[in-house]
Computed example of a mutant assay.
Amino acid sequence: MNERIDIKNVIVMLKRNIWWILAIIAITVASMFIYLNYIVTPIYQKSTQILVNQAENNQTNSIEAQTVQADLQLVNTYSTIISSPRILTKVQGELKGKYNLQELTEMISVKNTTNSQIIDINVNYLDAKTATDIVNVVTQVFTQEISEIMKISNVTILSEAQFFGNEKPVKPQKALLLVLAFFSGILLAVCFIFVKLLFERRFVSTEELEEYLGISVLGEVSVFQNGTLF
C-alpha cells in the first residue's frame, strides 16, 4: 500500500506495466497515422512572385536610390491592395463566381521580405491544380488593375505558379505530427502509471511492508507456477 510515491516504486511500476506503456504509445501513434492519412483533408499551396519597380530611365539606364526607396514603401500598400474587395471581385468574376469573397480572402495570403521589392502571393486550397489557377488569376488581375488604381505601371510578374501533378501538401505536416503523437503517447503512459500508482493498494516490497506496519519480515513464502506454496 502506497502512502507516498518514490523512485523505486515508480521504477517497479514501470517494469510491471511495460506492455501497457507500449500499447498506449502504439495506440496514440496509430490514431494519429489514421487521422493524417484517412480523415484530415490535405491543403496544397501555390505561389507567384511580383516585383515592384519603376521603369528604367532611358537616359541613364539606372534606378536611383530614391526610386528604390519609394518602391519599398509601396510594397506594403500593394500587399493590402491584393486582398482588397476591388481585386477579389475581379478575381471572382474571372473564376465564374465559383468562390465568394470570404472564401477567396481565406485562401489568399500575401507576404514580403523586409526591405525587398518582391511580393509573394500564396493560395492554399484542397486541390493543387485549382490553387495554381486561382493564384495565377489573382496575380494577373492585380497587375492589370494596379496601373489604374495607382496611375503608374511598376509591377512585373517574376514567376507564375505551375502545376506538376506530384505536389505535396503543406498541411498537415505528417512527420512533425507523428513525432508529437509519439511523445504524447509517452506522456499519457507516464500519467497512467502515476495514477495507477496513486491507487495501488498492494505492498510491492518487504521494505514497504516493514515501514508501513512497523514490523520485521522474517521470511517470504514463494508460490510455484502450479499454485503450490513453498
Rank of each mutant, 00 (worst) to 15 (best):
K8S: 14
I11E: 04
K15L: 12
R16A: 11
N17R: 14
I18R: 01
W19L: 11
W20P: 00
I21C: 01
L22N: 08
I25T: 12
I25A: 02
I25D: 07
T28R: 05
T28H: 02
V29M: 11
S31F: 04
I34G: 06
L36W: 00
N37R: 06
I39H: 03
V40S: 13
V40I: 15
Q49D: 11
I50L: 02
V52Q: 03
N53D: 09
E56F: 11
E56Q: 13
Q59C: 06
N61A: 10
S62Y: 10
I63G: 09
I63Q: 13
Q66N: 12
Q66D: 11
T67A: 10
L74R: 15
L74F: 05
T77R: 09
T77E: 11
Y78N: 08
S79N: 07
S79Q: 11
T80S: 12
I81R: 03
I81S: 12
I82A: 04
I82P: 01
I87C: 02
L88S: 08
T89R: 08
K90N: 11
L95M: 03
L95K: 02
L95Y: 00
G97T: 08
K98C: 04
E106P: 07
V110R: 02
K111T: 15
T114E: 12
N115T: 09
I118N: 12
I118Y: 07
I118E: 10
D120V: 13
D127I: 04
T130N: 14
T130F: 09
A131R: 01
D133W: 08
I134N: 03
V137G: 02
V137E: 14
Q140D: 15
Q140Y: 06
S147D: 10
E148H: 12
I149L: 03
I149H: 00
K151H: 10
S159L: 11
A161C: 05
G165I: 00
E167G: 03
K168R: 15
K168L: 13
V170L: 09
P172T: 09
K174M: 08
L178K: 06
V179Y: 07
F182P: 06
F183S: 14
G185Q: 01
L188E: 15
A189P: 03
C191W: 00
V195N: 05
E200W: 00
V204H: 07
E207D: 13
L209Q: 05
E210N: 06
G214K: 00
S216A: 10
V221Y: 00
V221C: 04
V223S: 12
L229M: 14
